[in-house]
Design a protein around this nucleic acid. Structure first.
Lengths: 200, 200
DNA sequence: CATTTTAATGACTATTAGTCAATGACTTTA
DNA sequence: TAAAGTCATTGACTAATAGTCATTAAAATG
């Protein structure tokens, strides 16, 4: 890698760090490109060298969190399906605890906003969620944890509903419930109810 | 009521109708005040006579849908708690079917957006949701349908999570599931699981 | 009819997303 | 190593649009 390429990567990362901090403290509504570049110590135009739209950098930040969760799950191959899903839910809530309520809001806002940028593979964050969950369920079928005739598509979407509902409600209640307890309730009650009849 | 007051009301309503149509067809991101006033046939400044911020008119529109749902529920006093909640869920989905996916998106976006305007009673849409559900549950306790020691607060929030999750997922899947089936799944499985142990 | 009130106006400011031609630091090549 | 070429960076620029406000005219009042 040449010096030029290295510097470009550094600049890009400076922009992401800067945007992430602003997002955490002030939320998406207050986020503006000039603030991002000022904090990063570059000119405004530089932003548009690396990101096509303001939303793109936010999508990238959210994608970062998502990758972390994905990694955590990779290391859980031995666990059974219900436990794995509980960890999946818990990971999201942990990310929220770590990064704060504004990031959580942005995660949801980004999902319902039709303008949200897909990643370089052309996939939206939402599609990633779906794919990841589908894989977990399909693997469970392979491992004889779940019945062969389980409606994977429907189950996937119902489980994602639980995840988004849990996060949305937690944001709106401004952290009224203790995050870990909150997650556990969902893993224990609706999640189990959804899977129940298809468990082997 | 004087002519002046009547005309003012009419103007206000024209603005709301105009905004509602634009919202339905183009979504919130594309909504702009100048379009609203142009369509309504008034000058831009007129908008700000009736609404303090752009968001306020959207909040008012959503509030309108909400009132309709509230009215439907008023006429359901005889039904039991599980049925009543099923109707509650169904009403939201019906509103979505009637008003379209953009209104549904806005309903969720408005809930997670901390800038959303409260109504004249100082209540956000989200607080309305919570209050309405709490009332339903408290009434169920009075009617001996639900145990006296049911944790109303927690149940309220878990049920709202189901509602928002169901709606969010449906929007994100771009109406992939048939709305009525989709609602029924949630009323039948997670909702029942949440209430189950507190039913009498 | 004279005076007061207020809904409506549209030109105005302020903010900010996004563009682009110019620059010069780095890389390649002969 | 010097000339030629590449590309990250810049900041002044345009465009779009939220929100303001002094003015106007129509309606209400007495």
């Amino acid at each position: 890698m040449t010096i030029r390429q290295e510097n470009a990567l550094k600049t890009r990362q400076k922009l992401i760090n800067s945007a992430e901090n602003l997002l955490k403290t002030n939320g998406f509504n207050a986020l503006c490109v000039e603030d991002i570049t000022k904090t990063a110590g570059v000119a405004k135009g530089t932003f548009y060298v690396y990101f096509k739209h303001k939303e793109d950098i936010v999508a990238e930040i959210c994608r970062g969190y998502f990758k972390q969760i994905e990694n955590q799950l990779e290391q859980m191959k031995t666990h059974n399906i219900v436990e794995k899903l509980a960890v999946y839910f818990d990971s999201f809530m942990r990310a929220v605890m770590l990064y704060g309520i504004n990031i959580c809001r942005e995660w949801i806002r980004g999902a319902i906003d039709p303008n949200t940028a897909p990643d370089n593979a052309g996939m939206t964050k939402w599609q990633y969620d779906v794919e990841m969950l589908k894989n977990i369920l399909n693997n469970a079928i392979k491992n004889n944890e779940l019945k062969k005739d389980a409606p994977v598509d429907l189950l996937t979407h119902m489980i994602i509903s639980e995840l988004y509902g849990m996060m949305t409600c937690w944001c709106m209640s401004d952290g009224y419930f203790e995050p870990t307890d909150w997650t556990k309730k969902f893993a224990d009650i609706p999640l189990k109810a959804i899977l129940e009849r298809y468990l082997l």
